Amino acid sequence: MTLASSPLRRLLPDAVLLFVAILWGGSYLATQDLAMASSAAAVMCARFVPSAVILLSLSLARPRTTLRESALPGILLGSLRAATIALEAIGVTLTSATNAGLIIALSILLIPILESALTRRRLSPALIGSILLALAGIALLVSGNGFVAFNLGDGLILIAAATRALLGVAEARFTMGRDADVLGLTTVEITFGAIIFAIWGGSSLMEHMPDFTATNWLVVAYLVLGCTIVAFLGQLWATKQTSASRAGMLLGTEPGWALLVGVLIAGDRIGPLGYAGAAILLFATWWGARAERRWRAEGIGSPREDSPVPENAT
């Protein structure tokens, strides 16, 4: 049995995506603490500008490196990423964390719907069931304080869920089955976002930076190295190995990890419903892995409806 066909090799993308979800789950508390010492705009600037500098240095240090081929897709991914993060950052200040966690998780459902529309393949009942079950698990996990009335913040988070779904599908389209330069794409994506967030939050960051404590700088390092560089590279690489639907469901566990971080670090409590939601989410993830592999395997070799018919076809 070769490494390429080994169970470890097949599980590696899932493990990477779960690790990314864990990193992003911890970013909520980290961003909240840093924003209290500065502003949401300053946090985005402090997160993206150093990340762009580091990735640009790594990319340009490679022999025969060119970012030209990654420019257009990277700018598109960067636009979607920046829009998603900005909408989340503003929306979460206008609504409850419970509402935000529930609504952003809708991207889990939107991604396979978009992917199914693009490939013109119907989702299997098992895959649909696992996605809905995952949403139910997330709802239980974050519903300890109840779901309050829909407001402007909820609307912004809903738009963020849509842009996150588009981002997931776009990443898959630009990487799956192609010799995509993951580092180049991520570099252009983050650099584009850095320009936007530098314009938005640069002055605020410069104003508050002299007052940052050692803890604040550790949070910045976590957001830069973990939640941006490692997470974005890992997400793009893992999505290239699997599918947008599978990646979306695994990354959709992010609210659960965010709640776990709150329980372990901030002393939050989730109660019986939260633990039930965690168990449901774990089962849905396992079920979804099996359903997604079967759905993707059944699609291999099946021509799309818009594919050209070979000239020698009868």
Rank of each mutant, 00 (worst) to 15 (best):
N99V: 07
L135T: 00
E171H: 06
P73V: 07
S130G: 08
A100H: 00
L123F: 01
A136T: 12
A100P: 02
S143I: 06
S79M: 15
L156D: 03
L167S: 10
L106E: 00
S143P: 06
F147Q: 03
S116T: 03
A117D: 02
N99Y: 04
E88F: 13
E69W: 09
T93V: 12
S143H: 11
R121H: 05
R178N: 13
A71C: 13
G146C: 07
A162T: 14
I108E: 00
L87F: 10
G177D: 11
L141Y: 00
R178E: 13
L114C: 10
I111G: 06
R120T: 05
D154G: 08
L110T: 07
A162I: 15
A170V: 12
E69A: 15
A82F: 15
T163N: 12
I111H: 06
P73R: 11
G177K: 12
G168W: 04
L77V: 05
F174M: 13
G168L: 12
A160Q: 07
G168F: 12
L72F: 13
G146F: 03
R178H: 14
A136E: 05
L94G: 04
R120S: 10
P112Q: 06
S116A: 15
A139V: 05
A170G: 11
P112F: 03
R173A: 14
L102Y: 00
L132S: 03
I157W: 00
T84L: 07
R164P: 00
A139D: 03
E171M: 15
G153T: 06
P73E: 12
A105W: 01
S70V: 08
A82E: 05
G146Q: 07
L114E: 03
E171D: 08
R122S: 12
A82I: 13
A136K: 02
I138L: 01
L135W: 03
V148I: 11
N151G: 14
S70Q: 11
T95Y: 06
G155W: 11
A136P: 00
T98A: 10
L133P: 03
S96V: 04
T175I: 09
M176Y: 07
I157E: 01
A162V: 15
R178W: 06
M176S: 12
T175E: 06
N99P: 04
L114V: 06
E88Y: 12
L118Y: 09
F174L: 11
I138F: 01
S124V: 04
A139F: 08
L140Y: 05
S107V: 05
I131G: 11
A139I: 03
L94P: 01
R81G: 14
I104W: 00
T175M: 09
A89I: 05
S70T: 08
N99G: 03
A105R: 01
G137N: 05
A180S: 13
V142R: 02
L141P: 00
R173K: 14
S130M: 07
G137H: 02
A134G: 02
F150G: 10
F147C: 06
P125Y: 10
V142K: 01
R121K: 10
G168P: 07
L167F: 15
N145T: 13
